[in-house]
């Protein structure tokens, strides 16, 4: 299939970027968006030109490394699918596809379509873990977590940290990312012990870089891990709970 690509080119964090137009005549429908970029880059390398930089690793939707904005939408047109799994059959022959980095003021561009998502790491450093020594695995049935709770917790633990939710949000909010972690750990026996402190630290850290939630629902629509939209409610609720309770748990 024939495609016209408009690909973001930016030499570095302090340089201004621009779109570069590329014609592709021999793309196949089975290609993923990343494979399409590989294909374009091969041509650039053969001609001795600078290829486009983009991030990717596992290419099977579990690592959260890849991520670019495709026609204004993070990861691409498919729902709940990472860029590496978005195939070209979602596009029509002759279409123009605009490829650019994840867009958020919290994500400075490193080069072309690679952004620095350190602002998310910073939020996670405030409490996205269990800080006590958990020891070795306990004997079976000594810690009781019912099936429903563990499944609900796992739904929120599924976040792969790609950061598409922030790029999808017109407000630049990281509520889905943060809420997912707050819900995930608050339901588990060890995570529960630090529920209040975690909410206080993580939500207060959000203030520095991220916006507020207006419930557009775009984040949950693009999330490759399918984190439910209700996770965003956890941010305000858990922070208010911690404020009223004033304790660490």
């Amino acid at each position: 299939m024939k495609l016209t690509l408009e690909i973001w080119r930016q030499a570095g964090p302090t340089q201004e970027g621009h779109f570069e137009t590329v014609q592709v005549d021999d793309a196949s429908e089975q290609m993923s968006i990343l494979e399409l970029l590989d294909h374009v880059n091969e041509g650039y390398i053969e001609r001795g030109e600078e290829p486009f930089a983009f991030a990717s690793d596992c290419r099977e939707g579990i690592c959260g490394t890849c991520g670019l904005t495709v026609n204004g939408r993070p990861h691409g047109p498919g729902q709940n699918t990472p860029a590496c799994q978005q195939r070209l059959f979602n596009f029509t022959d002759g279409q123009t596809i605009k490829l650019e980095p994840f867009r958020s003021a919290a994500y400075p561009v490193i080069k072309d379509m690679i952004v620095d998502r350190a602002a998310l790491d910073h939020v996670m450093e405030q409490g996205g873990y269990v800080s006590m020594d958990a020891g070795t695995a306990p004997d079976a049935d000594t810690l009781h977590v019912n099936h429903e709770t563990s499944e609900y917790s796992l739904d929120h633990a599924a976040c792969i940290g790609c950061g598409a939710c922030v790029a999808a949000c017109p407000n630049g909010a990281a509520h889905l990312f943060t809420g997912a972690k707050l819900v995930h750990l608050s339901l588990m026996p060890l995570g529960k012990e630090e529920r209040g402190r975690r909410a206080r630290n993580m939500v207060d850290d959000l203030e520095a870089n991220f916006g507020h939630c207006s419930l557009y629902g775009e984040c949950a629509d693009v999330c490759p891990a399918g984190v439910p939209l209700t996770a965003v409610s956890a941010v305000t609720r858990e922070r208010a709970r911690a404020a009223f309770r004033g304790k660490d748990d």
């Binding site: 026609n71 204004g72 939408r73 650019e100 867009r103 958020s104 003021a105 919290a106 999808a168 949000c169 017109p170 407000n171 630049g172 909010a173 870089n209 991220f210 916006g211 507020h212 207006s214 419930l215 557009y216 629902g217 775009e218 629509d221």
Partner: peptide
Amino acid sequence: LTARSKASRGKFRRSNLMGGLDSFATKSM
């Protein structure tokens, strides 16, 4: 909140939203 979210989003505004009544109502708050 609007001022904060504008600063957090940066100069590249989100385009290609899902659409529909809810999305329109949200955008036009």
